[in-house]
Computed example of a mutant assay.
Amino acid sequence: MSVVENSQTDRILAVDDTRDNLILVQTILESEGYEIDLVSDGISALAKIAQSPPDLILLDVMMPGMDGYEVTRRIRNNPHLNYIPILLITAFHESSVVEGLDAGADDFIRKPFDTDELLARVRSLLRLKHSLDEQRKMARQREDFVSRLTHDLRTPLVAADRMLGLFEQETFCKISPEMKQAIAVMIRSNKNLMQMVNTLLEVYRFEAGKKTLNYESCNLPEIATEVVSELTPLADEKNISLKLDISQLDNSGENTAYVMGDALELRRVLHNLVGNAIKFTDTGGISIKIWENQHWVNVAVADTGYGIAPEDQATIFERFRQGRNKRSGSGLGLHLSSRIIEAHQGKIGLTSEVGRGSTFTIQLPKK
């Protein structure tokens, strides 16, 4: 009876420099319904895997030229390959098993092997492969669904925003002050929802590798000045200060602090960091400081707000990681900011103390 557990025949690559061993493995596995490819050395195995990745690899440890350990390491270090289970075949003592497992192999079997044991180990590793493939497929489907959903949500949200704006302007008829106040609340709520949807859409574009950055020469002090100008009214409403400090730059910031990057995305990061600082600060103020050293342009956004608990700081940049503060949002803004900075070959970090405020720092390579 066939042991193949999925609707598609599993392909197994057997690698051994001894022809008789390959023929034996081929005979055993083909009789169970598996499709077998045979190669006799490590270089040929890597070429075969790159051309057509198998579902499982049976790999002899001792081969001339490139041994099974090195083949395993190269497979595991190839970022373009999905997970492929590797079953090492060895005739040696325990230390060779340890070395193989450390190199990235999943299991081992010693020569001369028992047929039933070989088939059991093959079935076990293929079950693991199928399970991981199914999880990866479900994750792709889930992300595709969310991406499509957020994209489709934008259309009615934009339409609602325009219609509410017309109501507020009394385009259709006169409205009472109470109604104007209610409409203003609806407009703010709708904008918050649209911002959340846009952020979620951008996150999934990054996750799917579909985000294209338009690199150009960017003046960070200029971008920061625009952000401060836009967000100052929010700070004024809370009676807190918002200041930009470029005093450590030569020529007061002119012809300095340039980076190669996407100006809109870098502006998004600064807008998010400063906006968050305003949200979580009730007294004191926020300062944005820009300076540079030999290789980096540095930005620090410091506030005198609530601060972030130590147990939350380690995961603050992870997707959907919300803070404990009741004002915390979706947990996407900081994750997106970190993805944007990473895409610019930069670094983002945090220092914070509960009750004393937080400082987010950004490092970007100088132009």
Score class of each variant (00 low, 15 high):
D116T: 13
L58P: 08
L13A: 05
V15F: 00
I89E: 00
L336H: 05
D144W: 15
E353A: 15
E342D: 12
H93P: 09
R74K: 00
L350G: 10
D67I: 10
G346S: 06
I316S: 05
R140Y: 11
G331Q: 00
S31C: 11
I348S: 02
F108A: 03
L56E: 06
E222W: 11
V203N: 05
E30G: 08
V227T: 07
N78W: 01
N77K: 14
G323R: 06
L22R: 10
I175H: 08
N78C: 13
T90W: 03
S252K: 11
S131T: 15
R356H: 05
G68D: 02
N255H: 02
E30T: 12
I36W: 07
V122D: 03
V274S: 07
A105S: 07
T256G: 03
A343H: 10
E237Q: 11
D116W: 07
N251W: 06
A50I: 09
K279W: 00
M62L: 14
S247V: 12
R205T: 04
R74V: 08
E30P: 08
T315G: 13
A343F: 06
D20A: 15
Y83E: 08
T361R: 10
E311T: 12
H295C: 07
A14V: 04
L266I: 01
G331S: 00
R205P: 12
S95N: 11
S338K: 15
N192D: 14
Y258Q: 12
H93K: 11
G323I: 05
S44E: 06
T18H: 14
D60I: 06
S95W: 06
I49W: 04
G333K: 13
V228W: 01
I240D: 07
D144S: 15
I57L: 05
L22D: 02
K367H: 10
A224R: 03
S352M: 03
V158W: 10
L242D: 07
R267F: 07
G104Y: 05
V122K: 00
I362S: 07
F172A: 09
I341V: 00
R140F: 13
R321F: 01
